[in-house]
Write a protein that binds this DNA or RNA. Structure first.
Length: 876
RNA sequence: GGGCGCGUAGCUCAGCGGGAGAGCGCUCGCCUCACACGCGAGAGGUCGCAGGUUCAAAACCUGCCGCGCCCACCA
């Protein structure tokens, strides 16, 4: 074993070996309790970014642990066809070849997308493997594959038959750049600096005017009404009359509607039913006509007044303002006026509320209530719990969901139309119209929103709608791990569809993690230059290092997760530390499955190691059961580095090198036993290095991935050993501090006598050789702390006694100054504790053990004060 | 307009009723026979501010101040 761990040699080897051996293949017939996670399918166009790396690390951690715990663990991988994203990528490719999508035609285009998918798509799969993820690749799925396409049709038809899917001409969120409708969740609202313009409409009969305010002046070209609040006295007389449109001379009516806020602006609002959701509603109630003045690219069409034809929305806005100014119709302009504007989640264009012909919708009324309930009655729980509330609130306010997209890449809507306008919705492509039998059918040109197929993911991947063994075994999934950014887009919809179509929650626990940000909490972006590429990090530091640093950063408390190259470097250092601990152990340990020596041969160090390891087990399990990844990482790090290596290995070394062969073998066996079990605990987080080292403990092959998760053993808890060990640590640390304080060379050797509690004398004496070595004191001896100290020597305190050192080693004045400072601290402590005990309320109301603790403090502080006085006297 | 989260060491964060912790950074000393990707020792914090509850508050309550995020049809 070389002194430096080389992940680039180890990791690819194991990644390949695991797959070759097929050890992550799940067997629904095993009879074991199932534990299933389906991966949030990355886009087929995607490459692994740190967000994936985080989510995949956490999932792998859970699935590997479950597998070791004896569950039939299935981590089902796959990819999403990602409608718009993929279509855009392929369109760009075509454009490079000078080919236009429309000229190519639909079928040829879709073929090209498939071809692209086969050759370039799915790079991310290889990257996920490189991360060490223990997915069952034999079950890999794609949202557009045959089975999932069948699931999509089944879901569509069932919901259609149940009246949960309908077609209607509604206002949709239209992206003029991507030229498709979007669901509400795909619209990102952002505050934009606009202006609020108030202008006048003249009454048709010339008897006056009414003023209205708007941030979207150009839409006045499509105004078909003015609305006022029915209770607004100011305008009561105007309701029913008309105003004249200044540009095309139309007369448009003034109507009353309760939606209008009397206190906003002038209390009168222009109504553009075809381009504003509120106005659309008002028009529905009051019978105002729709007037669509935009084309699909949001430029003014010929429906509007002639002088504005062809202008884009923004130019039209200025043009209308100028035209109104010329008519002297502008009352006021307020700017900048901050207001929220919807943007496309993909291309960031401003969304246009637009009537784009007939669109398909999911009626959510009957879906959302069950989905809300399961979060309240505990059938579905969120981790951390605080996500429950936003989820429930979102469900309550959910509105019908537009599922048709005007794209070519995706699941085509399974609806066909005959020349008479009958609609046939079917699982299989129909030969004839279901209503009139006409064979002249045309399929709806639109495709489904990709979230429509991904909402089925937790069960469609398991074989639904067939009643497969996988589905029966692995549904509901145990847990879903994903980022909060798709809580509504994806998580909420899976719950609705799972409950509706499979009659159960899709997963029992939803673990919601934050966004990975840079070291200072800023979003990673190309323009900031702070993007961390996980593949580069794997190349430089290893996948284990990346995984560990991600897990350690994934705290439950804060919303987002800061990541720095330095922290990944820290993960690498940790791996190296573990590697070297293994090197040391295997110098003394012959290999094979470790077995503890009989209890009567356990030394103090053995007992301490076993007790500390026992505590670690409880910590790791306690943390992981609550999805506190950072806490478990921290516990493992602290144990391995600060306890096992710093003290366990150092204290055990004497026995390993000692003359007693059997004792040496015992020491090695205990180290090996504890280390091997710790490797198992660490394996889900750092699979590669633990596997590589663990081979030394495996009697002939096998994989740590299939080893048993360590169980608790109360027999190893040992408070007595921990107390004795603490005395030793204190003695050694006291001498080290003394040495450092007085700048004594690390190589300088001097005598030392430790005063320890009588009960610990034997324990300390048994490890005198180690104290000599670790503290650099020769010879070292221990006496009862109440013993007289050698005249002329001086002492330093430990928490349970003292260490006495020969004269002439150090600067007396400096030591005195230090002692005086410590004396001040001790007496202040004594004062505080005494005051507390003097407080009647404290003695009466505080818990008895707390009072007792305070009494002990007084005792200790008193002793310490006496000890310090003695030491000061010794100094002279 | 509603909601959520966060202000603790120089930085990033744990702690969430009984005497403040970690990693990184910093200082000092060490190539000590597993590891310099390391070892040993340190410095550094009126726990955002103000009230309140309590014998006891970094933690619980209220109000401010400051940051971040989500939701929302005031044109």
């Amino acid at each position: 074993m070389p002194p430096q761990y080389d992940p680039s040699e180890v990791e690819p080897r194991w990644a390949a070996a695991w797959l070759e051996r097929g050890i992550f293949r799940a067997d629904p017939a095993s009879g074991k309790e199932p534990y299933c996670i389906v991966i949030p399918p990355p886009n087929v166009t995607g490459r692994l970014h740190v967000g994936h790396a985080l989510g995949d690390t956490l999932q792998d951690l859970l699935i590997r642990r479950a597998r070791m715990q004896g569950y039939e663990a299935l981590w089902l991988p796959g990819m999403d066809h990602a409608g718009i994203a993929t279509q855009v990528v392929v369109e760009r490719e075509l454009r490079k070849e000078g080919i236009d999508r429309l000229a190519l035609g639909r079928d040829a285009f879709v073929e090209r997308v498939w071809a692209w998918k086969e050759s370039y798509g799915g790079q991310i799969v290889e990257q996920i493997k490189r991360l060490g993820c223990s997915c069952d690749w034999s079950r890999e799925r794609f949202t557009m594959d045959e089975g999932l396409s069948r699931a999509v049709r089944e879901a569509f038809v069932r919901w259609y038959d149940a009246g949960l899917i309908y077609r209607g001409e509604r206002l949709v969120n239209w992206c003029p750049t991507d030229q498709t409708g979007l669901s509400d969740s795909e619209v990102v609202h952002e505050d934009v600096e606009g202006e609020l313009v108030t202008f006048r409409y003249e009454l048709s009969d010339g008897s006056g005017a009414i003023a209205v305010a708007t941030t979207r002046l150009e839409t006045m070209l499509g105004d078909t009404g003015i609305a006022v609040n029915p209770d607004d006295e100011r305008y009561r007389d105007l309701v029913g009359r008309t105003v004249r449109h200044p540009f095309d001379g139309r007369d448009i009516p003034i109507v009353a509607d309760a939606l209008v806020d009397r206190d906003f602006g002038t209390g009168a609002v222009k109504v553009t039913p075809a381009h504003d959701p509120n106005d659309f509603e008002i028009a529905q109630r009051t019978g105002l006509p729709l007037m669509n003045i935009f084309g699909p690219d949001a430029s003014i069409n010929e429906v509007a007044a002639e002088e504005f034809y062809g202008l884009n929305r923004y130019d039209a806005r200025s043009a209308v303002r100028e035209a109104l100014a010329r008519l002297d119709a502008i009352v006021s302009e307020e700017r900048p006026y901050l207001h929220a504007v919807g943007h496309c989640y993909r291309c960031h264009s401003e969304i246009e509320p637009w009537i784009s012909g007939l669109q398909w919708f999911v009626a959510v009324d009957r879906l959302k209530e069950p989905a809300r309930e399961v979060a309240l009655d505990g059938r579905l729980t969120f981790w951390p719990e605080r996500w429950t509330k936003p989820y429930v609130a979102w469900m309550e306010n959910l509105r019908d969901w537009n599922i048709s997209r005007q794209l070519w890449w995706g699941h085509r809507i399974p609806a066909w139309y005959c020349p008479d306008g009958h609609v046939t919705v079917a699982r299989e492509d129909p030969e004839a119209c279901a209503t009139c039998g006409s064979a002249a059918l045309e399929q709806d040109p639109d495709v489904l929103d990709t979230w429509f197929s991904s909402q089925l993911w937790p069960f469609s991947t398991l074989g639904w709608p067939d009643d497969t063994e996988d589905l029966r075994t692995f549904y509901p999934n145990a847990v879903l791990v994903t980022g909060y950014e798709i809580l509504y887009l994806w998580v909420a919809r899976m719950v609705m569809s799972g409950l509706s179509l499979v009659d159960d929650v899709p997963f029992r626990h939803a673990v919601i993690h934050g966004l990975v940000r840079d070291a200072h909490g800023r979003k990673m972006s190309k323009s900031l230059g702070n993007v961390i590429d996980p593949m580069e990090m794997i190349d430089r530091f290893g996948a284990d290092a990346l995984r560990f640093s991600l897990a350690r950063a994934a705290t439950g408390g804060q919303q987002d997760i800061p990541l720095s190259v330095e922290s990944i470097e820290g993960g690498r250092n940790f791996a190296n530390k573990i590697w070297n601990a293994a090197r040391l152990i295997f110098r003394a340990y012959p290999g094979g499955t470790p077995e503890l020596p009989p209890r009567e041969r356990w030394t103090l160090v053995d007992r301490w190691l076993l007790a500390r390891h026992e505590a670690l087990l409880a910590e790791v399990d306690g943390a992981l059961d609550r999805y506190l990844f950072a806490e478990s990482a921290q516990a493992l790090y602290r144990f391995l580095w600060s306890e096992f290596c710093d003290w366990g290995l150092e204290m055990q070394k004497g026995r390993l090198d000692g003359s007693d062969e059997r004792d040496g073998a015992d020491a090695a066996a205990v180290l090996a036993w504890v280390f091997e079990r710790t490797l198992r605990l660490l394996h889900p987080m750092m699979p590669f290095i633990t596997e590589e080292i663990w081979q030394g403990f495996a009697g002939g092959g096998g994989s740590i991935a299939l080893a048993v998760w360590p169980g608790r053993s109360e027999a190893h808890a040992d408070a007595e050993a921990e107390a004795s060990f603490a005395v030793l640590q204190d003695v050694i640390t006291a001498v080290r501090q003394f040495r450092s304080r007085h700048r004594l060379a690390p190589t300088a050797r001097f005598e030392a006598v430790a005063g320890v509690p009588a009960a610990e004398l034997e324990a300390v004496a048994s490890l005198a050789e180690r104290v000599e070595r670790l503290a650099g004191v020769v010879p070292f001896s221990a006496v009862d702390a109440s013993s007289e100290r050698a005249v002329g020597w001086t002492a330093v305190s430990t928490s349970t006694g003292w260490v006495s050192l020969p004269p002439g080693l150090f600067d007396v004045d400096e030591e005195r100054t230090r002692l005086l400072r410590e004396r001040d601290e001790a007496s202040a402590q004594l004062e505080r504790s005494r005051a507390k005990l003097a407080n009647e309320g404290f003695r009466a109301k505080a818990a008895p053990e707390v009072v007792e603790q305070e009494r002990e403090r007084v005792e200790r502080a008193t002793d310490r004060l006496a000890e310090l006085d003695a030491q000061l006297a010794e100094l002279g």
